[in-house]
Structure formats: structure tokens, C-alpha cells
Simulated scan of single mutants.
Amino acid sequence: MTRETLARGVPHTAPGAVVALSLSGKLTVEPVEGRTIRFGRNRPEVDVCVGETDLRVSRTHGVLTHRGGRWWVSNTGRLPIRLPRARWLFRDEDPVPLPEGYTPLFIRGSRDREHLLEMYVVGWDGGRPAIQHGAPTQPPKAWRLTPDEHLVLVVLGQRYLLHEANPQPLSRQQAAEILAELQPGANWSAKRVEHTVAAVRARLSARGVHGLRREEVGEPVGNALNDNLLRELVLSATLVPPDLTLLDALC
């Protein structure tokens, strides 16, 4: 028997309402200012029970609040909540707004279990998304890069394009040495590589890409900023494996 899921949409419901679904139950709440939904392990004291057999899940692990026309999720538990696009929401951080449509929330429990809480914020049409079997496929939103930016990021992110397990960016010094081989007269240096990459991070961050600023990832930063940048560029098909032909001159 197929398990119920909100990923396919919800039946016709009041615009702005939220539907929450876990293995333990389902709840639909209309968009009333100040209304809250609590979720966590303690079934008698929460509105939606999740992870009730797992002591790693807090008794009240999070709260959903309707404020200013939107639903906001807060973490009140000990462990972080994983949101889409590899974003983590930690205890006492600022609430995160849920977009219209489907959002899965994951709480990691004991023995690498992950407990799923599905959320669906109903749009103004009040129902399921339209079926579009024959509609043209929307192309991915590729980011515009200058030729220099494109080359630097292919060099920096070549491990991602080679499908390595758990890839990491090259260091800016490694990238500068490779670029100097590819373009001997272009005066590539580690500082120029960093300035080029930082400009792309700033531009994409201003366009709404999360995880490209120090305050968004926390300390120690390590490779997190460039890792998040490269994952965005690969997932958006801005960088693709055929770009590795730019490195053929090294062979």
C-alpha cells in the first residue's frame, strides 16, 4: 500500500492554510494570525507527533506560526531540522518562512534515522497544482557568468564535475596554479581567484541563494561558502561535465 504524501498536492483547501503530515497523523490549519502548530515526540502535548519512539527527537521539536500572511517554522529542539537545499535550522535561530507548496522537514534521530514531517502551504488557487503532462519542460535557471568567472569555477569545482564522492573545492592556490598553466600570460594569483569567486558569491547571494555568506553558515567556515556556491552552480546546470574540456590543455 502506498503511503500518503503531500508531495502530490492537497485537496481543495482554504488559501493560505497549511497541511502537516507525519507517520503519526495529519493536520490542516487555516491561516489565522498568531495561530501556532507544535510538533515533536510528545504526542499528548503537540499538534503533530513526529519521531515518537526516538529519544533523540525533542518532546516539542519545533513550532509553526502564522504571522504576517506567512507560515514560519522555528526550531525548539536539541537537534537541527533539515530543510530543502541543504539548509539547516538550529535551535533559537530566526524562524524560516515556508514557501507556497510542498516543503519536507527532516529531523535526524538515533542510528541515522531521519523523521519526515511534510508541510504544504496552500496557494491562492486553493487546490492541487495543475497536471501538466504535455507542457514544455522549463529549462533550469542557469546563472550568467563572465568567461573568466566560468573558467575559474570550472577549475575550482572540477571534482564536482568529475562526480567524485563528497567533492570539495580546490584551494585558491591550487586553482591559481592550474589557471596559470592554462593562461600563462593572464597573471592569475590566489588573490585574483578569491576576488573572482567572491564576486560570484555576492551576486548570487543578492539574488536569493542561501549559504554564500559567513553569517549564514557559522564558524568555522572552512570550504562551506565555495562548496555551497559550486553545488548551486552544478544543480542549476550552470556548470556541467562537458565544461571539463576547458582543462584539456593540461593533459
Rank of each mutant, 00 (worst) to 15 (best):
R85Q: 15
A86R: 15
R87L: 03
L89V: 06
R91F: 11
R91T: 12
D92M: 04
D92N: 15
E93G: 03
V96G: 09
V96L: 10
P97Q: 03
P97N: 01
P97L: 06
L98C: 07
L98D: 00
L98G: 07
E100M: 13
E100S: 11
E100I: 02
P104L: 07
P104G: 07
L105S: 03
F106A: 04
G109N: 01
S110C: 01
S110K: 11
S110M: 13
R111I: 08
R111W: 10
D112P: 01
D112G: 00
D112E: 15
E114G: 07
H115Q: 11
H115T: 06
L116P: 01
L116R: 13
L116Y: 00
L116K: 11
L116F: 01
L117M: 15
L117E: 00
L117P: 10
E118D: 08
M119L: 15
Y120R: 09
Y120S: 04
Y120N: 08
V121Y: 03
V122C: 08
V122Y: 02
V122D: 02
G123L: 02
G123R: 11
D125R: 09
G126H: 03
G127L: 05
I131A: 11
I131M: 11
I131C: 11
H133M: 10
G134L: 14
A135D: 04
A135S: 10
A135W: 08
P136S: 05
P136L: 06
T137K: 11
T137M: 14
Q138N: 08
Q138R: 13
Q138I: 13
P140G: 07
P140C: 02
A142H: 05
